[in-house]
Amino acid sequence: TQTTHELTIPNNLIGCIIGRQGANINEIRQMSGAQIKIANPVEGSSGRQVTITGSAASISLAQYLINARLSSE
């Protein structure tokens, strides 16, 4: 079954999640098997909405990979 998880990434950290020309986010997508959508910046908001869709296992793996990127910054 597909589930969806949403999280907010601070604007100053979204770059390390996306990577150069989307390299990091594509790697996270491939490794986790989850669909990951990053919302466009919202004016006045300090973060970007990230939506992860997939199986429970792929979502938790995607979250783990995202958190690993954030903590390495």
Rank of each mutant, 00 (worst) to 15 (best):
I28D: 03
Q35H: 15
A34T: 13
S55A: 06
G47A: 12
G33F: 00
E6P: 00
L61P: 00
L65P: 01
G15Y: 10
I36N: 02
A39H: 14
I59W: 01
I17P: 00
S55I: 00
K37G: 06
Y64C: 15
A56I: 11
Q21S: 09
L65A: 14
S46C: 11
K37V: 11
S71V: 08
N11M: 06
R20Y: 13
S71K: 11
N11S: 09
I36H: 13
M31G: 05
S71Y: 06
G19R: 02
Q35I: 09
I59F: 00
N12C: 06
N11P: 05
I52E: 02
S58F: 08
V42G: 08
I28Y: 02
R20D: 13
S32P: 00
G44E: 06
A57Q: 14
S32V: 01
V50K: 02
T3R: 15
L65V: 01
I14G: 00
N12W: 05
G54V: 01
I14M: 08
C16E: 11
K37S: 09
S55C: 06
Y64L: 11
S58T: 06
I9C: 01
G33V: 00
A68I: 05
R20I: 10
S60V: 05
N11D: 15
I52T: 02
S46G: 11
K37D: 11
Q21D: 08
R69L: 05
E6Q: 15
E6Y: 15
T51C: 13
R20T: 07
C16R: 15
A62V: 04
P10W: 00
Y64M: 09
S71P: 13
Q21C: 05
P10A: 08
E27L: 06
T4F: 07
I18H: 01
N26W: 05
T3I: 05
I66L: 10
G54K: 01
T4I: 05
A23W: 04
S32D: 00
E73M: 15
P41Y: 11
G22N: 14
N24E: 12
R48M: 06
V42D: 11
N67R: 08
K37A: 09
T51M: 10
N24M: 13
Q35Y: 06
N40F: 04
A39L: 11
I28P: 00
T1M: 13
R20E: 12
E43N: 11
N24P: 09
T1Q: 03
A68P: 05
V50C: 08
S58N: 12
Q2V: 12
G47L: 12
A57W: 06
